[in-house]
Structure formats: structure tokens, C-alpha cells
Simulated scan of single mutants.
Amino acid sequence: MAQIPSEVLANIRQYAQKTRDAQQSQMELDESGDSKLEARLDQTIKELQMRVNEQRDRLEKLRTKSSNDVPQAPASDKIQRLAQLRVIKKAYEDLTPTEPSLPGPQSILPTLLATRTIQHTIANSKSAIESTTEQADAAKKQLEYQEQELHDANAITAALEARIERLRNQQSQQSQKSPEQIADELRAAKQAKKTGYEAEIRRLRAAFNGFVESHLAVMLAVEELGGPVAGELADINDDMLAAGFSNQGRSKVSRTLNNEARTDKRQQRLDNIWGQPVDSNNSTPRDEKDAAAAELHGLVEDLFNALLGSGGSGEYVQLERDSAAARFLVRAKVAQFHPKDARRLRLIDFGRELDDRP
């Protein structure tokens, strides 16, 4: 390869120095004013047009000269081929010292080119940042999911290992005990479970009885007297129970009656709806709330006995009438009517397996 002449290098260095000086003087375009900027742009456009025209003229001259001197295709003869190579070599040597076609020092073209390059770089950088951010977020979510999966897997593994260790210890201890000791431990464990179940039953029964006496009984009494369905009316007093309810479910206005007449009418209504009390020797007067509570307790006890098989009539209980207590148990999804007989009721066995359901 031919070495670049020193004159060409000197010209290039001189032009670079002039360009740097021009750029340093033009760092802030805004300070020069709009008129100066437009003038410089016009000058740059004219300069570019001049250079385009010059290049066009040179191209035409080169085409004209190539059509006469420069061969269009390599010759087959070695001597002619060598002559063609010498012509091409001479053309390169003639063009090498030529000063490169570069914009003048006062041209704003380098600034515009640099600005465009910077804008493209910034746009590409923003796009790359957005794409990288999305990829990072997706990778972070995937990492969090994998970490959670790993945490769950480690927890399951630890639990299984602990369970296996306990079973091994139990098996080792059981193998060292006699059959009588094992039987005694099983009986003791069963008795402890039975005691715990009985205590829990007593607790739940007390809670149920307290709920009935405090809230549910008076609501059932209102429903039996023709009032709103249990749960719809919260504020209920004794005067409302004594007066009763109309066909529209509204509380009746208590008419002016003496106490003895009002008591006789109320007692007659109690006997007609709930019947005579089982303990007729009890001297304590009962009211609608007590009668509804007693009916609910009796119905629940009969349903439990039927479910346990101690009722003697299967799992269904024969109802004497359509009572508010029975309807409430059905609405609460505690009991259900027979599919073909609405006078028969049974508890829903929540402990029954799904495959055993009819």
C-alpha cells in the first residue's frame, strides 16, 4: 500500500484544527440569534450545493476520460492487462494528493451532523432502556415466583422429613413395647379424645342455648305470631309479643283490656300454637319466647337422636306442624326436609363422605 504523503497529512491536521476552533466558537447556538443562525444555514446550503456541482462536474469528466483511456474490462493478453493496471495505478496516484472534499471551517454542517447523531443515539438509548427495563421487570417477577416456589418446596421437604423422623421414632418405640402397653396407650388416647369431645360438646351446647335464649327464641316467637321472618326484626319487646301481629306482619295496637282478660287471651294463644307445657306442675308462667325456645330445643334434640339412630324412626323426625323452628333450621342449612314429605325433617350430616350421599 502506498504511503500517504506528508502534505496530505498536514492538510488534514490543519483542517481538523480549524474545525475544532470553529466548533468551540459555536457551542451555544442560541446566543448568536435567529438571523445569524439562518444566515449560517443558508451559507452551508450554498456550500453544499457548490460541492455537489463540483462533484458532478468531476464525475462527468471522469466518465468522459474513462470512456477513452480506462479499459472497461480486463484484457486477456498479459501485456495489455499490465498496461491496464498501470493506467489504474496512475489514476489512484493522481487522486491521492487531492485535498479531501470537506466543509469549510465556518460551516454549520458538522454541528448539524453531530446533533443528528446525538439525537439518534439518545432515541436508541431510550428505546434500549425501556426494553431492558421491561425485561428486568419480567425477570424480577419470574425470580420472585421461583423464590416462592423454592420456599414452598423447602417447607414441604422440611415437614416431610420431620414427619418421617417422628414416624421412625414412633416405630422404634412401638417395637420396644409389649402388646399390653400398646393397648393401654391406645385406650388412654381414645379416652382423652372422648373427654375432649364431651367438653367441646358441652361448650357448644352452652353457647347454642345462650344464643337461643338471648336472640333466636324471641325472633321465632314473632314469626309464629305472624310477624317478620326470624332475623328481619331486631328490636322486639314484650308488648309486641303480647299484642301479636296482623296479617301484613305489623305489630297490633294493644286494645284496652284488663290485665286478667289480656293474660287469658295470651295464654289461650300460647296453648293453641305451642300446646300445653310438658311440665304442667311448674308454677312459673311462660310466655311466647319460652315456648319458642322449648320447641326449638326439643326439635334439635329429636333431630340429634334420629341422626345417631336412637330415635327408633330412622334419621327423619316426624313434625306435628309447620313450625318457625323447623323453617329456621332449613334456612340455616342445618336440616332438610324429606324430598317427598315436607312433614319429615332430618339434620344434614356434615361428616358424611361425598361418595356416601344419596
Rank of each mutant, 00 (worst) to 15 (best):
E7Q: 13
E7F: 00
V8T: 11
V8H: 10
V8I: 05
V8Y: 08
L9I: 13
L9A: 12
N11T: 11
N11D: 13
I12A: 14
I12G: 10
Q14I: 00
Q14G: 11
Q14N: 14
Y15E: 14
Y15T: 09
Y15N: 12
A16D: 06
A16W: 04
A16V: 06
Q17T: 11
Q17Y: 02
Q17P: 07
Q17K: 13
K18C: 00
K18G: 11
K18L: 08
T19S: 07
T19G: 00
R20H: 12
R20G: 02
R20W: 13
R20D: 14
R20A: 15
D21S: 10
D21R: 12
D21Y: 04
D21A: 04
D21F: 04
A22V: 02
A22C: 08
Q23R: 10
Q24I: 04
Q24Y: 09
Q26T: 01
M27G: 12
E28V: 07
L29V: 02
L29T: 04
D30P: 02
D30W: 07
D30C: 02
E31K: 08
S32K: 09
S32Q: 13
S32F: 05
G33F: 00
G33W: 04
D34P: 01
D34Q: 08
D34G: 05
S35F: 08
S35I: 04
K36T: 06
K36F: 01
K36W: 07
L37A: 07
L37E: 06
E38M: 01
A39Y: 05
A39N: 11
A39M: 01
R40H: 02
R40Y: 01
L41P: 02
D42H: 10
D42S: 05
D42E: 03
Q43F: 02
T44H: 04
T44Q: 03
I45V: 11
E47T: 05
E47S: 07
L48D: 00
L48S: 07
Q49H: 09
Q49K: 14
M50V: 03
R51V: 05
R51I: 08
R51G: 00
V52C: 10
V52D: 12
N53W: 06
N53M: 03
N53D: 12
N53I: 01
E54D: 10
E54P: 02
E54F: 03
Q55V: 12
R56Q: 13
R56D: 14
D57R: 10
R58Q: 11
R58V: 01
R58T: 11
L59H: 10
E60F: 08
E60M: 13
E60P: 01
K61P: 07
K61G: 09
L62E: 10
L62C: 06
L62K: 03
L62R: 12
R63C: 05
T64Q: 08
K65A: 12
K65H: 13
S66G: 09
S66W: 02
S66K: 06
S67A: 15
D69A: 09
V70P: 05
V70A: 06
P71Y: 07
Q72T: 07
A73E: 15
P74F: 03
P74W: 02
A75L: 01
A75K: 03
A75R: 06
